[in-house]
Write a protein that binds this DNA or RNA. Structure first.
Lengths: 202, 202, 202, 202
DNA sequence: AATGAATGAGAATTCATTCAT
DNA sequence: AATGAATGAATTCTCATTCAT
């Protein structure tokens, strides 16, 4: 079924080229016309690949998540120490490069959009599972650290994982408002050190 | 003589009645017509109180901030211990009651909207100063704790303050997605204890 | 009936203050609000003096005509020679001072407005009678010149009068477009001399 | 492939069908809805051919001028004598047939509109150049007559040309008000003869 | 008599979507 | 499969007019 593969690939291409527009103007302020102009195709053709304007969000949500996972793998692939991994995750996860910033804005855009359509949309569950996956990875890291004796056994790994994930998202949010005066590195390092010295066995 | 109307008070009344709509549908998806229907007035009357649709956001941003400050004062008014104050702030600041949840959604809505209109809007500076004020209050609390010997002198109060503020906002964001399964109390307590034991003098 | 006199005077005051607005923005683009703001009274009060927005035009048409007549009398009051009077009329009638320019624009505005409402308005007859009066005065001047032997008996005074009146209005129209490069004096003088002496070689 | 449409041709078609509406109601009183209803198309389609309501005026101004030029060429194409040409121009240029009357009203409408928007619109220059072109043609005719010995050398051709053009516009204006009682032919003939021979007794 | 608060019809414009080609 | 012409519902905003005070 080569045709089907082509269709799916083109869906992705279109979505990928749409993402900067979404970050710049927001979903509601990005007319189909602008998307198809950006892609270089006719307005009507959009509907050969997506059932509606909304449909493209399914592809984009997937890409945002894919980018994030790929990013995590790239960042932490060749590090062994679980605590170092954790720190890299917190620090770099809070530091917005161009793509990351774009995706963060899209993420909030989708989030906002989803909250409005509560009950009748499929994105909230996706967000939930994305957060869940991220949280589980962090839990694993903490537990690994615990099993290696780097972190106290009685620490509530799940709760700390949630806290770190929340912290990262909060940092990203604030970075976009406060940037570039916001010293992300310093804040992350301070928090991490404070936490570290508390959860380390004495 | 015509009916005497307190214009500023009516601006506030309209804005207050508009806030639930903004939380439910988002600013871009709330037509003037819906606002005026909610308030119970004619469509044209809106423009006797606001210069444009956008203008109502000035009032609403102010209300969101005012609500928050009032809420903080109410929560922490009769507590003395700075560390307890801090914990209350983090925990209750992360716990969404009905009004707080509504305001949080509006806040994210405006945040998203402002990021898109970067360069030509007046809300980002307001957000910035709001974050700044919050951060300064937290810094004061930490320094008070330091001067009382409850927290190590060498702790970077400013950085930790930023971290806590970011954490709170991240928690609110996640609460909206994960609620009601999300155990905010447990996460906050775990984080706080971890940090406490780290920043406490040994 | 002193009250009635007051009302009429205030109608005139309002109309007089409205005229610059009409010249600047046009009748259709001058909201009642702008008129009453200019006059310094409440919006509703307008309707105590005029039955509708349109009603103020009756007053204004009258003022435009009154101004014109007064202007003619002032210009030609102390001149005796009918041909000189005629020349003064043509030249100065084609030369727009500030008030005259304003009234000319209003005149065209009303003219345009009247043409649109053909059949259901009372202004066209007023314009007609105004033109008729002007034309009659010019006819009288030409006939006076004829009786004094300054102009050939066989000249069609009525037709020439119409021509001069039309010429004056055309000049005003063009002045507004071409001004200030348009040398009104030179054009009027050339035409007048040509009419007097003829342009054919003798 | 979608229906192929000659966009420029359709712009002209729409503009041509809009002209009677403009003559009847004026530009400001002709909603897009009335235009599209007249043309027989959907309201939104208008904006596929014009960037704004104002944009259609560009097409219409062009048509008004084009009509006029075509009309002049038709009238004077096969006449040789420059003075006869001039007389035809003055007389027929002052005589309104249906199309001409319509265009004249539109011309005044746009004139009024342009005067109000002075400084921010592109029509005044167009009017200027149109008048300039007309004037230059008349100057050429007068000079031709001079070189053929039909008109005195010392006559100021440029000034007389301006005068005739102004006269024509003034006549059109008055025709619209006075018609049908207005004997345009008689007025033009009288003026023209007077100019030729002079009105002073010899 | 004077006011300005309130109204809603109506304006220009945008845009997701359909469909003939 | 691809296109863009066509549509009309929906949006923001204006304004003449009314009317309670």
């Amino acid at each position: 079924m080569p045709k089907v593969v082509d269709k799916e690939q083109k869906r992705i291409d279109i979505a990928r080229k749409t993402m900067p527009l979404l970050a710049k103007y927001g979903f509601e302020n990005t007319p189909i016309r602008r998307i198809t102009a950006e892609v270089g195709m006719g307005k009507g053709t959009f509907y050969d690949y997506f059932t509606s304007k909304e449909d493209i969000l399914n592809e984009i949500v997937r890409l945002v998540f894919t980018d994030w996972i790929e990013w995590v793998i790239r960042k932490m692939g060749n590090i062994d120490d679980p605590l170092e991994k954790l720190f890299i995750l917190v620090r770099d996860g809070s530091t917005l490069d161009a793509t990351f910033e774009q995706n963060m804005i899209i993420y909030v855009d989708l989030w906002r959009w989803s909250v409005s359509h509560k009950g009748s949309n499929e994105f909230i569950p996706k967000f939930r599972s994305y957060l869940e996956n991220g949280r589980n990875s962090v839990i694993d890291l903490i537990k690994e650290a615990q099993s290696k004796g780097l972190v106290k056994k009685e620490i509530d790994a799940a709760a700390i994982a949630s806290a770190l994930i929340a912290f990262i998202d909060g940092m990203c949010l604030h970075s976009l408002i406060l940037k570039p005066e916001f010293d992300v590195e310093r804040v992350c390092r301070s928090l991490f050190e404070s936490i570290l010295k508390g959860i380390r066995p004495t």
